[in-house]
Design a binder for these strands. Structure first.
Length: 548
DNA sequence: TCCCCTGGCACATTTGAATCGC
DNA sequence: AGCGATTCAAATGTGCCAGGGG
C-alpha cells in the first residue's frame, strides 16, 4: 500500500517562498502547507537532499493577481492557444550540478462546469469528463540546476486546446471549466534516474494561476487586461484606432463603434457613475442600483457600492456592471438555469480544500511511457501525455492500491482528479509530447493508448488524494501557493518490469539545439522539426537517464 | 432563442534568413 | 573568412466577429 505522508513543511520546501528578495513578491507571511508524498519504497542510496530546498517564485505575480482577481480566463482553440500571462518562474535552491526536469500540468480545479452569468462565473453543472492529461515539459529539460537558476524559466510556449484529438501535444482542456496549472520539478541526474523509483520531485502550485478555459472571452475585464498587457494584442489598444479598425474590418469608410467599444465606454461612464455613487452624489438613484441587484436575484446585502465582499467576483462591482445589466435583461433565463454560486466561491478556502479533496486520483504515468515519434507540426510542442490506459484502474481499484509501490512510483500523476469521468467514445489519439533536447531515445515501444477513463491507478504527486485510498487527506491552506515535495515517487519500472527506455545521449549538451540524428530511425520526425512527442500513459516502458 | 464553438480576418510581434560593412 | 549589425519577409500570436450547430 502506498503510504503517503502529509506533512507541513517550511518554506524551504515550498514554492514561492519569496525569500531572498526575489523579484517577485510572494507574500512572506503566507503560511503554506505542503504535501510531502513519501511512498513506502526503499529510499535512494543517495538521499535527495536538495529537492526540498528548491524555491520557486512566480514571475509577474502581480499581473497574475490582477487577472485572478478578475477571474482569469484562458482562450482555448483547436489549434492551441498560449496562456497569457505566461507561466514563468524564478527557481533557486537547486543543486547547480544536478539535472532537473521542469514540467507543467494543468488539472481541473473542481468538478464543475461554469457559465458566465450576470458578470460572474457561476456553476452551471457537473464537469465534463476530464481530457487526457498531458504534461508540458520545459524544452530545456533536463538541465542543471545552474541552468535553471540562471534565468527565468518560461513556459510561454505552452498551448491549450479543446481538441480532444489534438496531435500536437498541447494540453487538452474542456471549455468553461476551471483549471489549476502546477509546476513539477523532477530530479533527473544519473544517480536519480528519470523514472526511477527514487526520483525526487517537487510540486508547486500558485493559486493565482488558476483560470477558466473559454473559447471566447466572457469577462470584458479580462479582455481588457489581455489587450493591455499582451504585446500581441497591441493592435486592439486605443479606442479611436479601434473604432477605425473595426470600420475597416467591416468595409466601411466611417468609424464603427464595436461592441467592445460600447462596453468600454459604458465602463467608463459607469466608473464615473460609480465614483459619484461612492461619494454619495447618486447614491439614491434607484434605477442604477436596484435594477442590477434585483436582476441578479440576490437581495442586496449591502447597499454600499464599494463593498467588495457582497460579491466575491470583483467585476460584478466593476465598471462593466452597467453593460452586463443590459445584457442580463436579455438573459433572464440565466436566473432560471441555476446560477448556483459565484466562481470565486470556489477560490475560497473551502473550495481549495474541496479542490484537492475532490481530486482523488491525480494520476499519471508520465515517466513510464515510450516516445511516440510521429511527426508533428508544432514547433515547440513539448508535452507529455499523462494518459492512462484502461489498465489503470481507478480510484476504487484496490489492486493498484495494494500494488502501489513500484506501480505508483512508476506512474506519475497528472490529471484525472475525477476518475469517475471517462471519455469513452472519444478514442484518444496518440499524441505529441516531445522531449526536445533532453535525451536520446534508444528504443521505442508502441504504446496502446486508451481513453482517459475513469479508472486510474493510484499514484499521485501528493497534491491530490484518493477518495478511496487510505491516504491522509491533504489539507491545503488558502495560501497563494503551495508545493509538495517527495523524495521518491517516480518509478523506474512499470508494473510489468520493463526497463526504462529513455536514455540520455552520452555527452549530450544541455541544449544541443536539436541533434535529432540520434532519435529513432523509425521515427517520422522531421529533422527540422523540433517537436518530439513523448507518449505517457500506463505503458510498460519506463524511461531512464544515463549520464556518461 | 440561446449558448457555445469555429474559422477567417487584420494587426502586432517574433523569428530567422539574407545582406551589408567592418 | 569571420563576426556583428541591420533589414526584411515569413511565421506566429492576438482579439474580434459573423455564422453555424446543438
Amino acid at each position: 500500500m502506498l503510504q503517503e505522508k502529509v506533512s507541513v513543511v517550511t518554506d524551504e520546501c515550498m514554492a514561492g517562498s519569496g525569500g531572498g528578495g526575489e523579484e517577485t513578491d510572494l507574500l512572506p507571511d503566507q503560511s503554506r502547507l505542503s504535501l510531502s508524498t513519501a511512498p513506502s519504497i526503499p529510499s535512494s542510496s543517495e538521499p535527495d537532499q536538495n529537492i526540498e530546498n528548491i524555491k520557486v517564485v512566480l514571475h509577474e505575480r502581480e499581473l497574475w493577481k490582477k487577472f485572478h482577481e478578475a477571474g482569469t480566463e484562458m482562450i482555448i482553440t483547436k489549434a492551441g492557444r498560449r496562456m497569457f500571462p505566461s507561466y514563468k518562474v524564478k527557481v533557486s535552491g537547486m543543486n547547480p550540478k544536478t539535472k532537473y526536469i521542469l514540467l507543467i500540468d494543468i488539472v481541473p480545479a473542481d468538478d464543475h462546469r461554469y457559465k458566465f452569468c450576470d458578470n460572474k462565473w457561476m456553476v452551471a453543472g457537473k464537469a465534463e469528463p476530464a481530457m487526457p492529461g498531458r504534461l508540458y515539459v520545459h524544452p530545456d529539460s533536463p538541465a542543471t540546476g545552474a541552468h535553471w537558476m540562471r534565468q527565468l524559466v518560461s513556459f510561454q510556449k505552452l498551448k491549450l486546446t479543446n481538441n480532444h484529438l489534438d496531435p500536437f501535444g498541447h494540453i487538452i482542456l474542456n471549455s468553461m471549466h476551471k483549471y489549476q496549472p502546477r509546476l513539477h520539478i523532477v530530479k533527473a541526474d544519473e544517480n536519480n534516474a528519470f523514472g526511477s523509483k527514487n526520483t525526487a520531485y517537487c510540486t508547486h502550485v500558485f493559486h493565482e494561476t488558476a483560470f477558466i478555459s473559454v473559447t471566447s472571452y466572457q469577462n470584458h475585464k479580462i479582455t481588457q487586461l489581455k489587450i493591455e498587457n499582451n504585446p500581441f494584442a497591441k493592435g486592439f489598444r486605443g479606442s479611436e484606432e479601434g473604432d477605425l479598425r473595426v470600420s475597416r474590418l467591416q468595409g466601411k469608410d466611417y468609424p464603427v463603434i464595436s461592441k467592445n467599444m460600447v462596453r468600454q465606454r459604458l465602463i467608463t461612464s459607469h466608473s464615473h457613475l460609480a465614483g459619484k455613487l461612492g461619494t454619495g452624489v447618486l447614491s439614491g438613484h434607484p434605477s442604477v442600483l436596484s435594477s442590477y441587484q434585483y436582476d441578479t436575484g440576490v437581495p442586496p446585502s449591502n447597499s454600499d457600492p464599494q463593498d467588495p465582499i457582497s460579491n466575491h467576483f470583483p467585476q460584478s462591482r466593476d465598471p462593466s456592471l452597467l453593460y452586463h445589466c443590459f445584457k442580463h435583461r436579455d438573459n433572464t433565463r440565466h436566473l432560471e438555469l441555476g446560477c448556483k454560486r459565484p466562481y470565486l466561491d470556489t477560490s475560497s478556502a473551502v473550495s481549495e480544500e474541496h479542490y484537492f479533496r475532490s481530486a482523488p486520483a491525480y494520476e499519471s504515468s508520465l515517466l513510464s511511457h515510450p516516445y511516440c515519434t510521429e511527426a508533428i507540426n508544432s514547433r515547440e510542442a513539448c508535452m507529455y501525455s499523462a494518459m492512462d490506459t484502461e489498465s489503470g484502474s481507478g480510484v476504487g481499484d484496490t489492486d493498484d492500491l495494494t500494488n502501489s509501490s513500484s506501480i505508483n512510483c512508476n506512474m506519475w500523476a497528472t490529471m484525472q482528479p475525477y476518475p469517475r469521468y471517462g471519455v469513452e467514445g472519444v478514442p484518444y489519439q496518440p499524441f505529441a509530447a516531445h522531449f526536445p533536447n533532453a535525451a536520446t531515445v534508444t528504443s521505442v515501444v508502441p504504446h496502446p493508448t486508451s481513453s482517459m477513463g475513469s479508472r486510474q491507478p493510484q499514484a499521485d504527486l501528493g497534491v491530490y488524494n484518493s477518495s478511496t485510498s487510505q491516504r491522509a487527506l491533504p489539507i491545503i491552506t488558502p495560501s497563494s501557493s503551495s508545493s509538495s515535495c517527495s523524495p521518491s515517487i517516480l518509478g523506474s519500472r512499470d508494473r510489468s518490469g520493463h526497463p526504462p527506455l529513455y536514455h540520455k545521449k552520452p555527452g549530450s549538451p544541455l541544449r544541443p539545439h536539436r541533434d535529432y540524428s540520434a532519435y529513432p530511425t523509425q521515427s517520422t520526425i522531421s529533422i527540422r522539426d523540433p517537436s518530439y512527442q513523448y507518449q505517457v500513459g500506463l505503458s510498460s516502458a519506463g524511461t531512464h537517464w544515463t549520464d556518461s
